[in-house]
Amino acid sequence: MPEPILSIRGMDAHYGDFQALYGVDMTLAEGEVIAIIGANGAGKTTLMRSISGLTQNSSDQIYFRGQPIGALRADQVSGLGIALVPEGRQLFPSLSVEENLQIGGRLMRKGPWSLDKIYKLFPVLEERRRVPSTSLSGGQQQMVAIGRALMANPDLILFDEISLGLAPVIIKSIYAALPGIVGTGMSAMIVEQDVSKALSVSNRLYCLQEGRIALTGYAGKVPREAIIAAYFGVK
């Protein structure tokens, strides 16, 4: 069996005295897309922060292409080819749309994504490339956040709450773009509250509940009742 691109082994995560994750085990194969679902406070964002290096863990709890990365800083993790689309977009307000995209590509990793490709994926961004990123609508800002992560040409892209706070029509267009993104061969983890949307683009799912993995399985094969039970913690 080939080495997974990402392997998480018994990961705990803490914020001071509060423990947010308990012994999480997870693997992600090359080119695979997995959905991370769970209610508020289940530990989804902590998982994303841990993988991307924003929250540091023990070095032997997260492996990327066989290399322990748990104790690395975010700038070191990003250099290895992991990009995060953070919850709430979090664009740089003093940078224009184009500058936000350019800074995503500052590490100059080789790959299929370039400024032109991002503008092809989201044409509205090219029209508005000179304006401050904060003057965009929420949906357009999410496009910039996705484009910024893609500009890094990552091998693994993490989407944290990809549709949170967006209008349904915008969510639809972003999900329409996702197959074109992950179709380029990169692996992806999608954190999402909208379970059916997440499963529509994923190979597998992990359901987190109060910091523990409550359910895992192949999308489409896990019964709806099992997902509901794991999501809400119903026995």
């Binding site: 290096g53 800083r73 975010a74 700038d75 979090q90």
Partner: peptide, 24 residues
Amino acid sequence: TELGRGFRAVSDNQEIAQLMGLNR
């Protein structure tokens, strides 16, 4: 310049700037 972009990004949001490979 790219350096200036880095200065502005870190000034805006140190944590997210780290995700761009910028060591603050």
